[in-house]
Write a protein that binds this DNA or RNA. Structure first.
Length: 624
DNA sequence: GTTAGGG
DNA sequence: CCCTAAC
């Protein structure tokens, strides 16, 4: 399955430390995962993103376990994430597996460890300590490990920084294969879910309580779906603070830049999302809103993600449903809303002194590990698992409005990945009747096929997006601390809203996915030096010749396109016109700004002259 | 492929 | 930075 491949790819990019990579751990996780038959589909990515966010937002606290569990449930489903506290009092520090010993230093302070960081994952680092060791500027560089996904996708320049090492999420940390890695954080997927076979009946779990009332509106959801970016529903801005203290190792400016930009870009993205009203402030996805069919929330249900459908067969003329045209309502479309998929229960052991950030990271790692195994989607309808991908929805009956609630989707281990998923195994499905977070989206052809035909890139993209959105929230440590103090800061406590948001991601049409692939470039603010070069070039060449400007002054800066230069000039002109107090970012010397205005005025005038000239010429021509 | 502008 | 129209 391509999809899986993608996932794998993503994780590979992850670059697990060689030494740290524990075959055993991985296999273990995988096995567990398979047992549970839980996987994540594209939504999983969402979940992951969610987790990441949670990681960042939640304050570290010993009582977290409850909170986390809730969160996870809300987010992921019934599976509880358990947090066990270890007696270790020592705060988590960044550990380099390759070092064979845990180093209690912040990444920032040890630039030379970049390599290690890149190649190895680290156990969580203590934000507080990082805070101390990092100067204000550096703080900006802090980036959630989630970035790794992005890095893989878009950065050529820098290797992804890993946050946690396998060992950290390793199943058997203490006995982990990596000598140097301390098993501070232990993440294990539990088999509990295995028992919950049949999934049709969602087991009651506490989760539900964590859910918040649904606030999403179909419209919003739809919007989200439609949005070009496949992202996790963003939380309100500022809500996320990436406090995880996760610092990306940065050795040189380039990297720093990168990081910083990235965070900025994340913010922007988030903003964008917000703008789109994509996110629900509180994660509660209301099943009510979305799925009418769902009946109770009681489902605490089990691990499955569930899906609800609704809207039954709306008939629309769209193109999508082509393959279902076999019968009568040829063009009728079945509209399904899948709010979220469940993820296998995760077991995490972490010292009470560990930071929230580390906790988040751990969860993320666990999720990532699961995702990395590859998943596919299982369809359960009316209590039966539908294995024939060639059947149309019509044939299977998945178009009957009244029965849509009998439709469920489950994430299953990818068979191709060595999983022995047996058809008989009861899938962890969630009945539609269990309203959960769903996002509505138009069902596109091929969905019935378990998305097997999903484009390969989709998964990766999704992950990336998730991650991205996640680290959008990257903020300075200061923000973090503030966040923690805030009442509604994302705590480990069950925070339905968060979960929802994260889960609310839904990849849809292939087309949209396509666009999703196109990752937004990282933001790279122009340095004063660059501005100077730009100004100089424009003074010489004038505006309107951006390609030449690019060639002349930024030929070596491949990340600066002539469009970028044009845009920068635009902003420079704007900046020069506003009061210094209104300016943001790295201050540009007034002298340069003055030159900008002068050049702008000059070339504008020249341009005007040109136009007049041309105009007159044309007039003359016309007259003759 | 470039420009120019709005988003 | 992105997206697009227009060239």
């Amino acid at each position: 399955m391509v999809f899986q491949k993608r996932l794998d790819y993503g994780f590979n990019g992850y670059q697990v430390p060689r030494g740290c990579r524990s075959a055993r751990g991985r296999s273990s996780l995988k096995r567990k995962f398979e047992d549970t038959q839980m996987g994540a589909f594209e939504l999983l990515a969402t979940v992951a993103g969610k987790l990441l966010q949670e990681r960042e937002a939640s304050p570290a606290h010993s009582n977290v376990s409850g909170g986390i569990g809730t969160t996870m449930q809300a987010t992921v489903g019934k599976d509880n994430v358990k947090l066990e506290q270890r007696d270790e009092e020592k705060p988590l520090k960044v550990e380099s597996c390759d070092q064979g010993s845990s180093e209690e230093t912040s990444l920032v302070s040890k630039p030379n460890q970049n390599k290690c960081l890149d190649e190895f994952s680290h156990v969580v680092s203590d934000p507080a300590s990082l805070d101390k060791s990092v100067n204000a500027e550096d703080r900006n560089e802090i980036v959630p490990e989630t970035c790794i996904f992005n890095d893989m996708l878009e950065l050529d320049t820098k290797p992804p920084a890993l946050v946690s090492s396998d060992s950290s999420i390793g199943i058997h940390p203490s006995s982990g294969p990596f000598p140097g890695c301390r098993g501070n954080v232990k993440l294990v997927s539990r088999d509990d879910d295995d028992n919950s076979s049949g999934c049709t009946q969602p087991s009651t779990t506490p989760l539900k309580s964590s859910r918040t009332p649904p606030r999403l509106e179909d419209r919003k959801i739809k919007k989200v779906l439609e949005s070009k970016y496949w992202e996790v529903a963003p939380k309100l801005e500022g809500e996320l603070s990436n406090t995880d203290g996760y610092i990306k190792p940065i050795s040189h400016n380039e990297k720093v830049f990168y990081t910083r930009q990235r965070s900025l870009r994340n913010t922007l993205k988030r903003r964008k999302l917000d703008k789109r009203a994509v996110s629900t402030s509180d994660g509660g996805v209301s099943s009510e809103v979305i799925s009418n069919s769902s009946k109770n929330g009681k489902n605490g249900n089990t691990n499955s993600l569930f899906s609800t459908t609704h809207g039954g067969s709306g008939v629309s003329s769209s193109s999508a449903a082509g393959h279902e045209s076999s019968s009568q309502s040829k063009d009728a479309h079945v509209k399904l809303s899948i709010k979220s998929f469940r993820v296998p229960e995760l077991f995490i052991e972490i010292p009470e002194t560990a930071t929230v950030g580390s906790l988040k990271r751990s969860v993320m790692e666990a999720v990532a590990a699961i995702i990395g195994e590859g998943l596919h989607v299982g369809v359960l309808y009316q209590g039966k698992k539908i294995r024939d991908d060639s059947k149309t929805l019509l044939q299977t009956g998945i178009c009957d409005d009244d029965k849509l609630d009998g439709l469920g989707f489950a994430l299953e281990p990818n068979p191709t990945n060595g999983s022995h998923f047996s058809p008989k195994d009861p899938p962890y499905l969630v009945q539609s009747d269990v309203p959960q977070l769903l996002t509505r989206y138009p069902l596109s052809p091929g969905i019935d096929a378990g998305l097997s035909d999903a484009s390969p890139d989709t998964p990766l993209t999704n992950l990336t997006n998730c991650v991205e959105s996640d680290h959008d929230s990257v903020l300075s440590p200061t923000d973090m601390s503030i966040d923690k103090t805030m009442p509604d800061s994302r705590a480990l406590v069950p925070h339905p809203s968060m979960s929802v948001d994260a889960l609310a991601v839904v990849p849809l049409h292939r087309k949209s996915r396509r666009s999703d692939l196109v990752q937004r470039r990282i933001r790279r603010p122009f340095s004063v030096h660059e501005v100077e070069a730009l100004v100089h070039a424009v003074e010489k060449l004038g505006t309107g010749r951006w390609r030449d400007v690019k060639l002349r002054a930024f030929d070596n800066a491949k990340h600066r396109t002539y469009v970028d230069l044009k845009d920068k000039w635009k902003t420079l002109v704007h900046t020069a016109r506003i009061s210094p107090q209104q300016r943001r970012g790295e201050p540009v010397p007034q002298e340069l700004l003055d030159r900008v205005l002068a050049a702008h005025a000059y070339w504008s005038q020249q341009q005007a002259k040109q136009q007049v000239k041309q105009l007159t010429e044309t007039c003359l021509l016309l007259k003759t």
